[in-house]
Write a protein that binds this DNA or RNA. Structure first.
Lengths: 137, 137
DNA sequence: CAATATGATACTCATAGAGTATCTTATTGT
DNA sequence: ACAATAAGATACTCTATGAGTATCATATTG
């Protein structure tokens, strides 16, 4: 799976934060985006740790986006929630195939992975927002 | 994961069968390729059901490849052992996202999937064999 | 100081990939 | 005929991971 649920939820949350531009609680995000509350909290905490959002405790507190949408690449979010984009290396995790370097299949999978990375890294939150506006979603 | 272990094992087994061109038992495949015996058997049975190999019971029996290596696409094997090549649709399996059709992300993931399929479907057992010969693997 | 909101952390639950076990059926050499 | 060999069929276990939950601690504010 290229995009996990957590990454997808993070995108939606950040999109909402970017459009609202006000401090927003996890509770509100949960309500608006129909994402389970404890899961949403977990995701927001991760985004906080990575410096994508600021957070403030207490009544009226919540999260605020820290980077401009154009700076937030999809691959950054994938890295946070899923680790490196990987369609290839994972197969024989610990004990990597000894022929890896010379293997034709591995080379081809590497090509696919590279292409995927290229496409994904060109996608920023900005694109996602403007495209969804254009479609009225 | 683009290529599962079972698919990978199937490739190795078919490669061996294609090069040997004689009836070969699962036991021999297991020995030569260092793949667990019951797992190898399961894989060979699947290949048999799909008509990629013939099988014969009894002493001296075993498997023989039925198609020419050039006819065996990697995507065919992926379909047998993993189902359709899919990097996109699986995310919200049952309850597919209602915006799927118009979603920008989904479109981009579709592009990546298409590219992956294109590359994988161009790879046949023939290529895998000749490339591995060239590298002396 | 009570209510609200996040921080940290540990937990459960479901699924799928990887691999195993076992019984049945067919073939063949002696 | 029959023991040995090899595949067919099928159901099972084991483990890791993604998805989601629960709970306690801590900070803020009216």
């Amino acid at each position: 799976m290229l995009i996990a649920r957590s990454t997808d939820y993070a995108v939606r949350a950040l999109k909402y934060l970017a459009e609202k531009r006000e401090e927003t609680s996890a509770a509100e995000l949960t309500r608006v985006l129909s994402i389970p509350w404890p899961f949403m909290r977990k995701i927001m905490q991760s985004l906080g740790k990575k410096g994508l959002v600021s957070s403030r405790k207490g009544p009226g507190g919540g999260f605020r986006i820290l980077k401009s949408p154009g700076e937030i690449k999809l691959t950054e979010l994938i890295n946070i929630f899923q680790g490196p984009v990987c369609l290839n290396e994972c197969i024989f995790k610990k004990k990597v195939c000894p022929h890896k370097k010379t293997c034709y299949l591995s080379k081809k999978l590497g090509e696919i992975e590279e292409h995927a990375y290229l496409v994904l890294s060109k996608i920023t939150l900005k694109e996602i927002i403007s495209q969804s506006r254009a479609k009225g979603v």
